[in-house]
Write a protein that binds this DNA or RNA. Sequence first.
DNA 1: GCTTGCTCCTACAGTAACTGGAGGTTGTAT
DNA 2: ATACAACCTCCAGTTACTGTAGGAGCAAGC
Lengths: 138, 138
Amino acid sequence: MAEAAHLTIGDLARQTGTKVNTIRFYEESGLLPQAERTASGRRVYRDADTRRLAFIRQSRNLGFPLDAVRELLTLADDANQPCEAIDRIARVHLAEIDRKIADLSALRTELDRVIGSCSHGTVADCKIIETLAPRAHE
Amino acid sequence: MAEAAHLTIGDLARQTGTKVNTIRFYEESGLLPQAERTASGRRVYRDADTRRLAFIRQSRNLGFPLDAVRELLTLADDANQPCEAIDRIARVHLAEIDRKIADLSALRTELDRVIGSCSHGTVADCKIIETLAPRAHE
DNA sequence: GCTTGCTCCTACAGTAACTGGAGGTTGTAT
DNA sequence: ATACAACCTCCAGTTACTGTAGGAGCAAGC
Ligand SMILES: [Zn+2]
Ligand SMILES: [Zn+2]
Ligand SMILES: [Zn+2]
Ligand SMILES: [Zn+2]
């Protein structure tokens, strides 16, 4: 039932919600194979490319950096291997996200404290500025 | 008591915990004024520069982007103005941080769910891969 | 057959905020 | 005098694209 249609780069872009330039960028980055070309030099894609690109986009949506996506793509090809390595990449990524959330939360707390301390007078009295400027002790 | 010492760029870097290259970058970006030079072309700094750079660094530590730092520096110079504009910049920045935290938290939830669904078999059964690959329905 | 307009091509600059290095000069201490 | 550190000016690299310039191809309507 599936038709192995030949897609243009624009078709592929539409199917996957990816910009045309981004697809070319993925090709150049080695995430997508070098596409076949028509006689006039236009890229031609097949369903397998759609699936690969969808995988990449889904991974990106989950925040995996391109290096991790590259590894995931390789690992996903060995269907009979244990999925340990895949899980590890995902857990490392989760830890990274947790770190970022922790950093931002600490920042948020501090910034909120600074903002809350302002009594809305002149710049000379502004506690925000006072926090940013080094207190000239003495 | 304060001595208006002439500082080298290295002195300034040490005093503020900034890399030498970063100081040059700030100068080029207009955050620091063009430094005076010695006869041989070396940059010379004074205490006012230390204070300005400390302000920049403190702002950066609170996550303000350089554009915001630039505005803060300008606003901080008008000591008699109301601090409204400063507060607004800070609140906009806080909102941005909140947005990032929300985005990351949503990502974290989803990623955690995906990881949790893996039953540690082969790649063929891995739920993580299944999530990333488009389900070939039918 | 021709023009219009869309899609495609390559190549490159720009984004944020630095960081590091190459290649060369100056200052300082022994 | 000779190290050696610190300074100088470029400039490339980082992340993951995005947008644009300048040019060619392709399908449709007239
Ligand atoms: Zn206020
Ligand atoms: Zn204030
Ligand atoms: Zn597993
Ligand atoms: Zn798994």
